[in-house]
Computed example of a mutant assay.
Amino acid sequence: MNWMLWMALAVVGGLMVAWPRRGLWARLREARRLAERARREDALKHILKTEANGREATLESVSGALQLSPQKAAGLLAELESGGLISFEGGRMQLSPQGRELATQVVRAHRLWESYLADRTGLTEEQWHRLAERQEHLLSRQQTEALAAELGHPRVDPHGDAIPEPGSALPADRGASLNSLEPETPAVITHVEDEPQPLYARLAREGLRPGVKICVLERTPNTVRLWGQGREHLLSPVEAQSIGVEPLSDTSLRDLQGEVFLHQLAPGQTARVVELSPACRGLERRRLLDLGFVPGTRVTVDMASPLGDPRAYRVRGSLVALRQDQARWIRVEPLPAEAA
């Protein structure tokens, strides 16, 4: 009996490995095929984004962006050239019409999927890019257009990047680098680079998102000290380089420093909601609106936990608990004691 059992197990094991489509070898081949396809599309995406921002893609830039050795990057570019997706004219790397169409589709799918994750799920910002990096290679054109329709055809993604339309040119990243902003010049964040991931996660934790108004207070060779969302932020020049900004002509540093946010109120203090930060979006924004934090609504700090976070706020007769990182998205106008 033992030999029959072992034979049956061997047959089952062989089927699990060699079964067409479902077997281990078939899955490994499919995974390898998808990985190779993703590398090709990532290279095309890098070339397209580099070109859109007025720079020239090179072997070194492709190698760095895809984290490949120069030898492997050269082999990948040769593969793209033989497939008619890129060409080299005068020593410059250029996308063919077919390569440009494919690269635009990948960028469009990525930014739409990030918009979906931001608006329709409770996933954190640190997760959006990683998941979209995988999904961008899996969405067909039909699925991408269905997703765009479901989202109401958004024009920009959560990082402030334009979502290209099919057949159109990819717009350049909006705004100039924060490193180029003169001190005491108010500006609005228009773009936050989502790579590398650890750097983006750090900026997300600081609450520096597209739509947030900021102003550089001081710049040294090693630090950039800025004001935004009711507090100071200390960045390195590398972190500041990942933020795109546009100057605000109708706002002063005094205006920004005079803004008050809900988390800054003292217990017992009453204020009127002015607005939710434009950087607060998706489920986070809908939840605050559903709780009653709409412009014009009065809110009173009722009590704080022993550690100060969360705090309880009285809104429209209800008691609502918010964490400090949620309350900082709500700009308010403190009311005099007699008006409260």
Rank of each mutant, 00 (worst) to 15 (best):
M1S: 15
N2G: 15
A8Q: 07
G13P: 02
A18C: 14
W19P: 01
L28A: 13
A38T: 04
E41R: 08
K49V: 09
A57T: 00
T58P: 05
E60M: 07
V62N: 04
V62R: 03
S63I: 02
S69A: 08
P70F: 12
P70N: 11
G84P: 09
G84I: 09
I86E: 05
L95S: 03
Q98L: 14
E101P: 00
L102H: 01
H110S: 08
R111F: 07
R111M: 09
R120E: 14
T124N: 08
E126R: 10
R134N: 08
E150G: 00
H159R: 14
P164H: 03
A169N: 10
A169M: 09
P171G: 08
D173M: 10
A176F: 13
T190Q: 13
D194T: 11
Q197R: 11
L199V: 07
E206G: 00
R209P: 03
G211I: 05
K213M: 11
I214L: 11
V216E: 02
E218H: 13
T223Q: 15
W227F: 10
Q229L: 14
G230H: 09
R231M: 10
L234H: 06
S252H: 02
R272N: 01
V273P: 01
S277V: 01
L283R: 15
G296R: 11
G308R: 06
A321N: 02
L322W: 05
A327T: 02
R328N: 07
